[in-house]
Amino acid sequence: MNETRRDRDAEGRARNARPRDGLGRPLPYGTPGVERQPEGVVRTPDETLQEAQRLLDAGKPFHAHEVFEDAWKSGPPEERELWRGLAQLAVGLTHAARGNTAGGARLLRRGAGALAPYGEGRPHGIELDGLAAWARELAGRVETGSKVDAEAEAPRLLG
């Protein structure tokens, strides 16, 4: 019988311990990778935005998406789609930077659409209109085959 071992965290939950690069791509075991974001961290909205912006500015949108994912899972129900939309923008940038044009463009547009119900307001100071415009513009460029540098394309979350 061939047994498959799964990586587990301290609580016994399945967690891939394989190292990853700055765009979240798996690297061979034993290769130095980028430090992973801890999962399940409850942050204030300001802390979430600050940490996500730091990661975006460093060209690590995959890791920023994990920060937004924590916010969507731990935040109030009325804000879940906001944080999920921001996570989709970050993972859309990740896919675009990896060269996945179809997936990158689709997620960028999906994330922009998820922000629309929040109107022209600026929840937590987030520049929703600017982010949605950035995502739609980048999605269009990605579809034409433009190369994407995640660090150079990092959006500004706060206006």
Rank of each mutant, 00 (worst) to 15 (best):
M1K: 08
M1N: 07
N2I: 15
N2D: 13
E3P: 00
R5W: 05
R5I: 12
R6M: 02
D7T: 09
D7M: 04
R8F: 06
E11T: 12
E11H: 04
G12S: 11
R13G: 01
A14Q: 06
R15P: 00
R15I: 07
R18L: 11
P19M: 06
R20P: 03
D21L: 09
G22D: 10
G24T: 03
R25Q: 09
L27F: 03
G30A: 05
P32Y: 00
E35W: 00
R36Q: 11
P38C: 11
E39W: 08
G40R: 06
V41I: 15
V41L: 14
T44H: 05
T44Y: 02
D46F: 04
T48M: 06
E51L: 15
A52Y: 06
R54M: 09
R54W: 08
L55K: 06
L55E: 02
L56N: 02
L56F: 10
D57N: 15
G59P: 01
F62Q: 00
A64H: 03
A64D: 01
H65F: 13
E66W: 00
E69Q: 13
D70P: 07
W72P: 01
G75K: 11
P76Q: 14
E79D: 12
E81S: 13
E81K: 13
R84Q: 15
G85V: 03
G85E: 09
G85M: 03
Q88L: 15
Q88R: 14
A90M: 13
A90G: 08
V91A: 07
L93W: 02
L93R: 05
T94V: 05
H95K: 15
A96Q: 04
A97T: 05
R98M: 07
N100R: 09
A102M: 12
G103H: 02
G103R: 04
G104I: 08
A105G: 09
L108A: 02
L108T: 09
G111T: 04
G111D: 06
G111A: 04
A112W: 09
A114F: 14
A116G: 02
P117E: 06
G119F: 12
G121C: 03
G121W: 09
R122C: 05
H124A: 10
G125N: 13
I126T: 08
I126M: 14
E127L: 01
L128S: 04
D129S: 09
L131I: 08
L131C: 01
A132G: 14
A133M: 10
E137Y: 01
L138G: 10
A139H: 08
A139C: 10
V142T: 14
T144P: 00
T144A: 08
K147E: 15
V148W: 08
A150F: 09
P155M: 07
R156Q: 10
L158S: 10
L158F: 03
G159Y: 02
G159M: 00
G159L: 07
